[in-house]
Amino acid sequence: MNSVSPNLDALARHVSLKVNGAERSADVEPRVLLVDFIRTNLRLTGTHIGCDTSSCGACTVLVDGTPMKSCTLLAVQVSGRSISTVEGLAAGAAMSPMQTGFHEEHGLQCGFCTPGMMLVGTALLEHNPNPTEEQIRWAISGNICRCTGYMNIVKAIQHAAAIKAEAVKAPKPEAVAAGGGQ
């Protein structure tokens, strides 16, 4: 596998992660940031970089289901843990409720913040299926969007919550099956 640094010296460590359900591993220097590991080593480029100061959330991933800034984690630090990125949101070609929400409510413009926003939204709905506007705004306050003014992002997350609530009321067997594998 192509690694961030080809000069694998004595410092290199073996990092193995479960990424979107699949085991992935590589030998990298300890200084390699998780975001670079994901983007460069795993070639999953949906996770973005927008700043150097842990301020923007463009790099958000879920670590064991919890949203974190992958630019402020070392790859070695999370070795052994389970990571979800935007590429893991959809079940095959079918969009997840969060993706559908963003599409329907025009929750994205340039799309650069979108992966992070959707992951935060996804994690939020896991423990708060019916959040208020205030709760949504608070939850996404570690993620900057320069384009949308957030109004439609809030609506998108509410839209996703509504889809999920519907699905709970009338569970579709196919949807459950599709969610399982990839």
Binding site: T45, G46, H48, L89, Q99, F102, H103, E104, H106, M118
Partner: peptide, 17 residues
Amino acid sequence: KRKEDSRFLHGKGNYID
């Protein structure tokens, strides 16, 4: 609805980096 959304929603946008 926007035609361009889909690639961004799947993390398949093609930005310079």
